[in-house]
Nucleic acid binder design. Structure first.
Lengths: 111, 111
DNA sequence: ATAATATATAATTGTATAATGATACGTTTA
DNA sequence: TAAACGTATCATTATACAATTATATATTAT
């Protein structure tokens, strides 16, 4: 039996992971690991369409995973917190261990 | 421009995070943080239906996040790797920082 | 063997959301 | 001011997936 506070914490954590659970958003975040980038640079680096990038950036920004600052007609995005980078790095470590299982998992679509 | 190997790695990572991005699965994993539990115990601890729990457990198992061992008519599940627990703990840390942003994010459904 | 219990699977349905194309908005340059 | 550029938003469509109900399978007990 879960308490209300636990349910809230779990929902937040699920949303955080959901923000990280899309290949397009991960591509964007990994691009931002090298430093701040504006939208056009991100589009060029990821081969995603501009509206698609903007949509995902809005999601990342709203979820607090990325931050934006406007400079003239450019908007530069950066990763909001070093721990986000840690999370991505730790995910790599876990993957090194469970990669085979994840790869073979058919309940979540390969993309 | 992303290389094929990067695309694959990113897809795997996205799938790993997607495995962690559902409140039901997180509830199950957090229940398992206390040690191995059989399905009925997980059902009791999470207030989820038995088929729902079994489905999510199958997903967690297929993705290598959880492991199962049958004992008589019970099937005990456990977290497969300590780093999975680390990932959950690190997510808590990140949340402490970005909780407000995640909470206010309306692009991903609150639940 | 039969019943009861524990778990898994299947089919269905509803909802969330990613991608796309069109367009609007804001800023700079000519 | 007009044109060009950079970014954001909207509407639509297609798909993924969580939850539910019903049922199947497997193990233990009577």
């Amino acid at each position: 039996m879960l308490l209300t506070a636990e349910i809230t914490a779990i929902s937040l954590k699920a949303k955080l992971f959901r923000g990280l659970s899309d290949p397009s958003r991960l591509s964007i975040l990994e691009c931002l690991l090298d430093g701040p980038r504006n939208v056009s640079e991100i589009v060029a680096a990821t081969d995603l369409s501009q509206p698609n990038v903007s949509n995902h950036l809005a999601c990342l920004r709203d979820c607090g995973l990325a931050a934006a600052v406007q400079e003239g007609r450019y908007v530069y995005y950066r990763i909001s917190d070093d721990r986000v980078a840690n999370l991505l790095a730790l995910a790599d470590e876990v993957l090194a261990e469970v990669a085979r299982g994840v790869y073979e998992c058919t309940r979540v679509t390969h993309s």
